[in-house]
Structures are given as C-alpha cells and as structure tokens.
Nucleic acid binder design. Structure first.
Length: 848
RNA sequence: GGGCGUGUAGCUCAGUUGGUCAGAGCACUCGGCUUACAACCGAGCGGUCGGAGGUUCGAGUCCUCUCGCGCCCA
C-alpha cells in the first residue's frame, strides 16, 4: 500500500497485469447458460477513433465486467472493420495510389516515397489489396492500444477482421447458402448508382441532401399541333423520356390518356399514361417519365411497362449512342451535342437547345429540393441499369417483412423505444438488399460464369465452389473442372468481378466471432449471443442486416438484447461528426484525467440518450477515483488488511446500520445494471460511497482506533466488509482504481471476484436498519452547521448538544460516535419534544 | 410532411406505479491546513420543473394543445 496513492501510471501497470493473468479469458468449458456473449461492434479502423467510441464501448465493458463478476463466462471478442470503401480511400490518400484492375500485378511494387493524393499512381488490384492489408494492420494496432488503455475487458485471443480469411469464408458460405435457398439472387435492374465511385449502392446507404435546382417548363407536342407543358428539374434527361404521366382523376388530361405526344428537341413519340403517384398539385400536374431520373421513374417504368431509353453511363456522362427512337437527323444532331457531357453540362446545353427551338417556356425557376446521395458520396446518385446481387429482406415480400418485424419484437431493446426505429425502417423498405459493389477491397462473390461459344457469360448458370474450398477468389482461382487458361476464353469461364458490400460481411459478426462452421463447439456455447451493443445510426444497416442473416441461416435472432448508445454531442450540444470538424480524439483526455475518469463520464450517459462531452464530469470521475484510493488506504490502515473479516464481530448499531444501507445499495445497483441501466447503478454506489466517507468514516474514526474493545473490533470489521463490497461495486466502472485498491489487501484481481451479495451484507447487519445511520448523520450535520455558521474549525470543541424529538432513539444508539466525531463534551437526548428530530448546539463560550 | 426522443438551479443531470420530489454534482459565496484525502473538508446561495389548458383532494409525474431543440424517415 503506497503512502500517497495516485492514479499516475495506473493504466500501464494494470493493462500488463491483466494481460499476464488472463483474467478476461473466455472459459470455453462453460455451457451456454453460464456464458454471456457479446457481439462487439467492429470499429472502422480506417477512421480515427473518437470520443464517441470510448463512450459506447465503455457501456459494453461495464456490462461485461458485471456479468463476469456475477459468475458468467464472458465471451467478449473484438473485431476490426477494415473491409470496404473507407479503407480504399485511406489507402489511396496514404500511399498516393489508385486501383486499376486492368494493370497486371507487380511483385516488386513499392509505393511512392512521397505520396501525392492528387496524382495517384495506378496499380493492380492485387497490389492495391496488399497495401490495404498492410495499412489496416497498422491501424488496428493503434485501436487495440487505446482499447486496452481504456480498460476494455476484451479477450484479445478472440479478434477478427472483416477482411480476414475466416470472415471471407463466412461471408461466402452464408451467401452460397442464401443462394441455394433462393434468398439471394441476381437481377439486371435499374440501380442506384454513385458516379464517383462507380458502384451500386443500397437503400440503407442513401441520404437526402438539399440542393439547388430549377424547374424548367417544356413544351411537348400533341398530334393536333397544340402543346402540353410539363415541368422538370432534369431537362438533360429529355432524350430518355419514355412517357408522360398524370393522375387518373386529373380532369385536365383525360383526353390525353392513351394518346401519344412528341418530345421537344428529339421528336420521339411517347404515350401519355395515368398513374396514382402523379401529383396533380405539382407543376402542371403532368410529368415526364425518363429512364431513369429518380426512383419514382423506376416505379412508373415497371408498373406501366414502358420502353427503356437509358442515356447516363457508369461514369455519369451522357452515353455516346442515342437511345432507340432518337432517329431523325435533327434529333441525332441535338443528341450529339450532349453525348459525352457530364449531367451538369448536358443540362446547360439542353437548355440552350430548347431555348433556340422555342420549346423552353419562360426561364428556369430556381428551387431547393432534396436530392438522393450515397452517404459517402459527393455527387447526386444516378439510376443505371446493371446486373447486381440481392438478398431478400422483405422489401418486396410482405411475408418476409412480417417475419422480420416479428424478430424485432422478440428482441429486448434498451432503451425500449429504439424498436420503433427498426420497425419503421423494415416497413418502409421498397427493394431487396443490394449487396454487390463494383469495388476492390471486399469479399469477392464466390461465383464463376461459364462462357458460351460466343464468349458471353451464362449468368443463368453460375458455378459455385464447395464450402470446403472457401474462401475463394474467382478472380485468381479457376472453378472446379476448369483450368486457369480457360479464363475469358470462349467455352471457358469468367469470375464474378464484384465484391460484397461491407454490411454483407459485418452482418455476420456473431457467426464470425463465434466460430460458425469453423468451431462448432465454440459456436454452440456463444450463439445466439446475449448482447448486441451499437449506435442508433446503424439500426437500419448493421442491426437489421444481422437479423436478416440470422433469420435465414438459423431461424432465430442473433442475440437476445440490443443496447443502443446515444450520440456524443460537443459542449455546444451539436452532434459530433467528422464533417462538422468538432470531433475530439480520446487520447489526450485519457492522459489528462485518467482512463477511469473518462469511463466515469461515459458511465454517466444513459443508453439511447445523447450526452454532451463534459470535462466537468471527467474531473468528478478523477476525484472519485482518488477518493476511493485514499479512503481505502485509511480504512485498511485502521482496520488491518484482513480479507476475511468475521461478520459476527459487527455488534454496534451504527456499524450494522451502515451495512444495512450498503445491502440496499447493492440490491438497487444490481437490479439496475442487470437491466442495462448502468447510470442508475453507478449513481447509487457513488452516493453511498460519499456518505460512507463523509459521515460513517468520520463517526467511527475514533472508535476504530480502540485496539482492544469489542466496539473497536465492530467498527474495523464493518469497515473491511464495506470496503470489500465497494471495491467490487466500483470495479465495472473504475476497473483500474478498483483493482489497485483491491490489490492492497487481496491476491488476485477484483475483476475475478464475485459481485457483492446483498444477503451476505444483511446477515452481517443482523437486526440493523439504515435509520440509525441516517439519524446519526443528521445530528452530525447539525453540529457541523453550527460550527460552520460560527466560523469555527470542524475540530472545535462543543460544550453541549441536545437532541430532541420523537425519533431520537436511532441517534442515541450512536451517541458516543456522535460525541467523538463532533467533539461534543456533553450530548443529551430529550424525547419530550414532538418534532421528528431537532438539535440544539451550545458553542464554547470563547466562540460566542 | 410523418415518426421517435427531449426540455427540471448559471452548467451537466437524478427524480420508478401521481402523495416530504423540488434533489445531486459542477460553478459561485463563506468558513476550515481536520493525522486518509488542500487535487481536501464543512456550510450556504440558487429553480413558479419550456408555455397554456384539463383530469384529480393532490401533477416535473397523467391527458390535450402549443413552443424550442435533437435524430430518423419522406
């Protein structure tokens, strides 16, 4: 026990001790009922770790430590999400390279010595992936060291990365099973498309952003030579127009339904259709349908069975060849002016052409409206018809949707209201889950296609590998029955060029971490898991996708509880995010206040509730940690360091009262933390502890020094019993401080000790109730107040104190302790007064 | 526009089924070097619980409307 307890260096010391002792190791001999398993969120290692991570991961660690002390074998793995676009972007910027799949592999490649992100060196796909692998390993080391310093009680023998062999095999295996059962399918269909990254994106990755635009009024021509006018924000898609549409009840257009009109500039004959989604109040009430301007166009195109005239290519530019129907010489001339242009330029040129032809009525009228973006993208999404892989998710199938809604209802949500967000999302789905991405650093689809004699792929007859061969890379491995020489040759094969969306892998995190189809014994002990902790922003993605995969593969939920953390707001209550530039990195705070202080702040934020970054709370946490060390040192120096005090020695009513109050605290805290209310648990423990220090320790100080009396032994024993429980109660919240203080008088870690039992404390308290302590503390407070108002030292002697009232008996039981703590010469009790409790203090004459 | 959450002391937040629930900490003021802790201790100041109605013997608490803020969806 040090002379001067301190938090300095406490993290480094205990991180090493815990690592060597293996106190956080999962005991895989435990059977499922004795296991508590956690589906830890794999952080995106290519991003920086910020204080929000520390916040939510601390919540999970509190639960893990509590369950461990409660006797569970805790399965607490850590994953790294390194698969996907964020890593590609980081590698591009870090090394100054970009992936060009057409370039052959260069085994001797060295990244540029002076990377220039603006002049990226094109490299082969394999070289690019090698760089991704190198950099993610480095990033993961940084994350791990911060997690250890924060005190996460992760079992570091159980880690995974979403791009490692096990993850790729699991993602491919699950996909093949989805495919075999008909839950995964390929389709060529209009797809939301990011033109910058040149990849398809899923509904869950969309976000609306307000963008300036303009309404353009265009004249279409009726057969009789008169005009019908429509309004559009996308005149550049005029060549892609396939119909006009108005609401079936709209009186203005009844005579046009079934007729055709000619488009401006291109003179294409298009039908006029009726559809309920046309809004009569918007513009002229009649709109042009293009293939494709937005998702409503897709709905119309599908339901009205319209022609297809695509004009936007994968690169976001107008394609070279005009679509079918743009046949006349003037039409081709107009189209040629647009071909190859970006959407932006094509719009300007179209407006010029329309103005020249007189088919633009009036001037464009500027507006602001929401436009769909890929959440990581910088340009508006286009809709391009492409061949993609999908997994059913209820978006086009009400039976599946109902099942998934039902799964959401089976889950124990903390807080409860988060379930609504899940349900709203599932019920609002309008398409299946698009999982293929035209990118590089991801899990490849384990699929090849035979090539016909004409060299074209037979998409209807995909070749799949045996599960035992996984993971496979169809881009470098040949399917069974073929040789590598047959790649790309007529009669040979070709590998599917796409990779899976990151969520298609991370949605299998319980299976990956739990050893699904790799370690059946482990999997049986941990799955379905107990807890999924995560942020509220990814309910629609990670949480939902994980439910979908488990529902199809296992017919069950992947976990029984979901703990949803809130946001971290900056001190001005703005959401912390990279784009706002108000992100705070944790290392500086961890160093300034100590890890336990940061954990204290995090623990004071409830699940699902946004919490402000509050250094004041960190200071409070630091103060609490230091106080625990000092109080422990004092109690142990007075009481001796006996780890197994004899509860029968607690004979004094005040001591029994304190233990009874502690038993209540344990009961409350246990119930709260078991119900994922760590905030309440901490508050209870903390409140007891401060009262313990301010009142009880002061009251028994003198008595505890009495070496040979039963009264002294009672105090010393009670101190040790309370201290032991307090160290254990604080252990989940302040693991460094708790283990430090615990180590002064115990072998082994507090984190391997049993969670305190209220029953044992009640047994020690015997007939005692908390009232004696409460009444005693009240008298002491009155004495202190009198001294304070007289501007006296707390050590000043008091001549006389009279305690009056009906309820003096409780306080009278600790009369000697009150007199000693208050330095009261004469302490009298008078039961004649009707008040509950009333204290009269007579100060020493010198002070009057 | 729809959904969810949230407004309590200058700040950060507790306030379980309506009945000592108007609280805690920080900040501030005053006092105290007290043998665990001055990085400490003691005391004090401070709010018509966002607003307006309603139910009730009684409303931060329940209902309705309304205002502010945050997030999600359209």
């Amino acid at each position: 026990m040090p002379d001067k307890p301190s938090l300095d260096g406490i993290e480094a010391k205990w991180v090493d001790v815990w690592d060597e002792s293996g106190v956080y190791h999962f005991d895989r001999t435990a059977s499922r009922p004795d296991v508590y398993s956690i589906d830890t969120p794999p952080p995106t290692v290519s991003g920086s770790l910020h204080i929000g991570h520390v916040f939510s991961y601390t919540h999970t660690d509190i639960v893990a430590r509590f369950q461990r002390m409660r006797g569970k074998s805790v399965f607490y793995p850590m994953g790294w999400d390194d698969n996907g676009l964020p890593t590609e972007r980081r590698v591009q910027n870090y090394y100054g390279v970009r992936c060009d799949p057409s370039i052959p592999y260069d085994p001797a490649f060295e990244p540029p010595a002076k990377p220039d992100p603006k002049r990226q060196v094109p490299i082969s796909r394999r070289n690019f992936i090698e760089l991704c692998d190198i950099l993610t390993v480095e990033d993961e080391k940084v994350f791990e060291s911060i997690w250890r310093r924060l005190g996460l009680s992760v079992d570091w023998r159980h880690t995974y990365a979403t791009i490692d062999d096990n993850s790729r095999a699991a993602a491919q295996r699950s996909f093949l099973r989805n495919l075999a059962r008909g839950e995964a399918y390929m389709a060529e269909a209009p797809t939301l498309w990011d033109v910058t990254y040149r990849t398809a994106v899923a509904q869950a990755e969309l976000e609306d952003r307000e963008r300036p635009s303009a309404y353009h009024t265009l004249a279409f021509h009726r057969p009789d030579g008169s005009d019908v006018t429509i309004e559009t924000t996308r005149p550049e898609l005029l060549a892609a127009c396939v119909a006009l549409v108005a609401h079936p009840d709209d009186e203005r257009y009844q005579d046009l339904f079934g007729a055709t009109v000619r488009t401006p500039l291109f003179g294409v004959e298009v039908p006029v259709k009726a559809h309920r989604l046309a809004d009569p109040d918007k513009g002229s009430g009649i709109a042009m349908i293009c293939t494709f301007g937005d998702t409503t166009d897709v709905t119309w195109w599908r339901e009205l069975q319209l022609a297809t005239r695509p004009v936007i290519g994968w690169d976001g530019r107008i394609v070279a060849e005009p679509p079918a129907g743009v046949d006349s010489a003037p039409a081709k001339e107009a189209y040629a002016a647009l071909a190859g242009a970006t959407v932006h330029t094509a719009r300007e040129r179209t407006v010029e052409l329309l103005r020249a032809s007189g088919e633009l009525l009036g001037e464009p009228r500027p507006i602001t409206h929401p436009v769909k973006f890929y959440e990581r993208g910088e340009k508006p999404l286009e809709i391009v018809t492409t061949r993609q892989w999908y997994i059913r998710n209820g978006g086009r199938d009400t039976a599946v949707r109902d099942e998934l809604v039902q799964r959401g209802r089976e889950l124990n949500w903390r807080p409860k209201h988060m379930q609504v967000r899940y349900e709203n999302w599932v019920e609002g789905l309008n398409s299946d889950w698009l999982i293929s991405r035209q990118r590089f650093f991801g899990v490849p689809f384990p699929v090849w296609y035979p090539l016909g004699a004409d060299g074209n792929p037979r998409y209807d007859a995909p070749i799949v590998p045996e599960e035992s061969a996984l993971p496979v890379d169809p881009g470098s491995e040949a399917p069974a029955g073929y040789t590598e020489e047959q790649r790309g040759a007529p009669g040979g094969f070709t590998g599917d060029p796409d990779v899976m969306d990151t969520w298609a892998t991370s949605s299998l995190s319980p299976q990956i971490a739990g050893g699904w189809e790799r370690d059946d014994d482990l999997f049986a002990r941990v799955f379905p898991m107990d807890l999924r902790p995560q942020g509220q922003d990814i309910i629609r993605t990670w949480l939902f996708a994980t439910v979908v995969r488990s529902h199809f593969e296992h017919g069950s939920l992947p976990w029984s509880n979901a703990a949803i953390s809130g946001w971290i707001l900056d001190p001005d209550r703005k959401k912390m995010s990279k784009s706002k530039g108000n992100v705070v990195t944790p290392l500086d705070l961890l160093e300034r206040y100590s890890s336990d202080a940061i954990r204290y702040w995090a623990a004071s934020g409830r699940l699902g509730t946004d919490t402000a970054l509050d250094e004041g709370q960190m200071k409070v946490g630091r103060r609490l940690a230091i106080k625990i060390l000092n109080a422990s040192k004092f109690a142990l120096s007075v009481a001796g360091e006996h780890t197994g005090p004899d509860a029968a020695a607690v004979t004094e009513p005040l001591d029994r009262a304190m233990l009874a109050a502690l038993a209540d605290t344990v009961e409350d805290a246990t119930a709260a933390i078991a119900d994922y209310d760590h905030t309440r648990a901490l508050e209870r423990v903390e409140r007891f502890f401060w009262n313990f220090c301010d009142d009880y320790l002061e009251l028994v100080k003198a008595r505890a020094y009495e070496a040979d009396s039963a009264r002294g032994a009672s105090a010393r024993t009670a101190l040790l019993i309370a201290l032991s429980a307090l160290h254990r109660l604080f252990a989940p919240f302040l693991p460094f401080t708790a283990d430090e203080a615990w180590s002064w008088w115990h072998e082994g870690s507090v984190h391997g000790a049993a969670w305190p039992a209220a029953d044992e404390l009640r047994t020690a308290a015997q007939d005692g109730g908390p009232a004696v302590l409460a009444a005693t503390a009240e008298v002491l407070r009155a004495v202190r107040k009198a001294k304070s108002e007289a501007k006296l030292s707390m050590r000043a002697d008091i001549e006389r104190v009279v305690v009056r009232g009906k309820h003096i008996d409780d306080a009278r039981l600790a009369a000697d302790d009150i007199a000693a703590a208050g330095r009261v010469a004469r302490l009298d009790f008078d039961a004649s007064d009707d008040a509950d409790l009333h204290v009269e203090v007579t100060l020493p004459a010198a002070a009057e």
